[in-house]
Nucleic acid binder design. Structure first.
Lengths: 230, 230
DNA sequence: GACGCCGCTTGACAAATGTCAAGTGAATGT
DNA sequence: ACATTCACTTGACATTTGTCAAGCGGCGTC
């Protein structure tokens, strides 16, 4: 593991104010590995061996039951994932696959648990990180429960628009089938939802989307600070 | 606050191994209060003043956007709620109302944050509690995303059946309209879903439900350890 | 360049879910 | 005892969402 990557990880809020000594101990037995796209990293029923840190690339967390599958969230670098599972010391609860070639640091879960009891700063940071993750899922859950498919898409586009600098055109960061799954609908339905949004100034060309009537789109989407803000 | 209630709270896992001194400090400025049924305790947009501990009664956490409202979860005694918000020091993110007359201990959120940095045992317990809550929402989210309304009802009944000692009849712990909202459907739809389950051995009489063909119901519900357990 | 693969779209249809309106029955208050 | 309220149910219908099948078009392989 090179210094550049080590520093990248070190500067994550979660690790930022733990002692150097504890940080080094955390890395004992860790792997930094590059995976190609479309690789299953772990399945939701596996025991949690590692806390994962996505350094580069893109990872999808998804769940399955009874032949159905749904994207729960997308991980974008640089970020940790499955912290809660690493702490609980049970199964992952979610499956993960790479969407692109990805570089991932895998830290043994037991190192995390050890650091938790040895380093109070780390414990405090973990509390905040988990509280943050918790609210993230709550937002996703609200989004799913209180909005229709078209509204979810409209709000997704508004969020991307803002994130990508409010420029005229935004780029969908994932394939449409993954986007559909993330928004809780079928790919067919996503296509139709885009058509529905046409009168509201949404033009789609491949993975490029332009928004020409922001106000109209917002009227339809009715964005909510408690769901869409981050 | 009487000793009985204090001990009840003290024995919650979250507080169980913090020092007596810190526990007493936690309670400075706390209120123990009884609320009648159907009282709004706080709204999702309020700043988080208190960590709540439900001693007795029943509380509903719900969310609203755009005239729609959905039950997110039910709190049953004895349990804390809105820990994540108390830590984050932002808004509650969820609204709360009493469903029955309820006795609630309200601990100032800043006491919680103070205890977090002073008592490492408490910080560790908080981490576990939050990880647990996180998985709880993830399960609810999976349930919502991967199942139909009838399946959610069927699995709900199976869980209640198990919790209530696998006896012949179980009792719905909430009004049907609240149950409907919790399961993400309208009351009308819940009624029809019960009718749909009739051929699978589900008989409903008011709030009493009996399950006569457990196997058949399980075949329909296809319960999943990662969604329904715990 | 021809072929096949794959992601996406579209149409036709089916299933799931919501809405509106009316009606039942039990609980409550006068 | 009567009226009122309210939760729940039921029916008819609308909307939303999913399914299946076909076709388009880009992209890589041979």
């Amino acid at each position: 593991m090179r210094n550049a990557e080590k520093e990248t990880v070190r500067s994550l809020e979660l690790f930022s104010d733990m002692s150097d000594k504890h940080f080094e101990e955390l890395l004992v037995g860790s792997f930094l590995q590059r995976f190609p796209a479309s690789v299953i990293l772990f399945s939701e029923t596996d025991l949690t061996d590692f806390l994962h840190v996505l350094i580069d690339g893109q990872v999808e967390l998804f769940a399955s039951t009874n032949n159905r599958e749904g994207t729960m969230t997308l991980i974008r670098p640089v970020a940790t994932f499955v912290l809660a599972s690493a702490i609980t010391d049970g199964v992952y609860q979610l499956s993960a696959r790479t969407l692109q070639s990805s570089q991932i640091l895998m830290i043994p879960a037991q190192n995390i648990r050890a650091a938790m009891s040895e380093d109070r700063k780390f414990a405090e940071r973990s509390v905040r990180e988990l509280a943050h993750c918790y609210h993230g899922v709550v937002r996703a859950y609200k989004n799913m429960k209180l909005r229709t498919a078209v509204e979810r898409l409209a709000n997704y586009l508004l969020v991307q628009h803002r994130r990508q600098g409010e420029s005229h055109a935004l780029v969908l960061p994932v394939e449409k089938r993954v986007l559909a799954s993330m928004l809780g609908m079928t790919p067919e339905n996503l296509s139709r939802s885009f058509v529905t949004l046409k009168p509201y100034g949404v033009k789609v060309d491949g993975s490029e989307v332009s928004i020409t009537k922001l106000k109209d789109l917002e009227t339809l989407a009715k964005p909510s600070a408690l769901i869409d803000n981050k």
